[in-house]
Design a binder for these strands. Structure first.
Ligand code: SF4
Ligand code: SF4
Lengths: 168, 168
DNA sequence: TTGAAACAGGACTATTTTTGTCCGGTTGCG
DNA sequence: CGCAACCGGACAAAAATAGTCCTGTTTCAA
């Protein structure tokens, strides 16, 4: 599992689409400026999203990108996998590249468990949910001192100990 | 959060120490051969572990490394953090490098949640636990066809859907 | 029909991170 | 003393990330 900027930009880009009327076509350029992302990089990323059927592109003047599915049905995990391909937290289970220890290694099981957990988190968050909580990049620069937006997948019941260092 | 090979090697190295009588001193060389890790790289890694007080080094002939604490008390998270420094799944909250969106970005909360989950997993696994399930590298090559060792932090009650692709 | 507007896609480059290697120094033992 | 081991920093190779750029191709509309 990588979670590189490409994934991040992809999510931000989709949020930009999601906060307009469904079906509206937006140019790359506009999204890029709105979320402060290098436009040519975003171009690449949206190509992946288009291949992943999350977004539809149209060319020519008046062209751009629009959401294909409603934002409620698009999970963060789908977005990430569309951009990064099949994810893996470690090299343990990558089909072919698989380590020769594989069957006998305890770590491999531990890593798989961790990966499953993050997949859980990402697959339980939708673009629509996130869109509701998001303030687009351009505006944020004037609104720094609000507290951090927290995300709780389903009705928050958690150790909290781990999160508190963030609040500090 | 990185989970690079350095972390992996660190864990494997500690497992090598953990499966001997407590307090035994083992040379780098031996550990490296046993788990099939480049010896000079492992040297670097064990330096970090020593700085993190997980392991004690002694020099001179007859020197080597020994566990300082009992393997039951060492969590995977501690090992990873000793090797990689303070971990972060994304660039969102890295003290100084923090993004200017920060306070207004929904993704940041989502990422933090995911990171907390993997910390949970890694902090609930001890070296001792893993040691019990592990077959050192050298032996594995002859024992490939046993099924994968699974790790369940506490008494397994999980979706399982995500894990099944691994079994396939 | 022509031209400009927009994305498609591949090749390319720059930067950063990971994954090591090397070697002189230091410490401890006999 | 002299060897055996780790220490620690500088260095180097390789891989991954983060982009850029340029040549299409499609579409719209004058
Ligand atoms: S954790 Fe174990 S199985 Fe996974 S790549 Fe490392 S040695 Fe192989
Ligand atoms: S996810 Fe949001 S807060 Fe985090 S680095 Fe990206 S833009 Fe900044």
């Amino acid at each position: 599992m990588q979670i590189t900027r490409a994934s991040e930009y992809a999510m931000l880009g989709l949020l930009a689409l999601a906060r307009r009327p469904m079906g509206e076509v937006v140019m790359l350029d506009v999204v890029a400026r709105e979320e402060d992302i290098p436009v040519s990089f975003l171009g690449k990323i949206f190509q992946s999203l288009a291949r992943g059927k999350l977004v539809k592109s149209s060319r020519g003047s008046g062209g751009g990108f629009m959401l294909v599915r409603s934002p409620e049905t698009i999970t963060a995990l789908e977005v990430i996998e569309a951009v990064e391909g099949p994810v893996s937290l470690t090299r343990c289970l990558d089909e072919d590249t698989g380590c020769e220890h594989a069957g006998g290694c305890a770590l491999c099981g531990l890593f798989a468990e961790a990966q499953d957990r993050v997949k859980e988190v990402f697959s339980s968050a939708t673009v629509a949910q996130l869109s509701g909580r998001h303030i687009p990049g351009g505006m944020v620069r004037q609104a720094r001192q609000r507290e951090r937006i927290v995300f709780r997948p389903q009705r928050a019941a958690k150790p909290a100990a781990l999160t508190e260092k963030n609040a500090a």
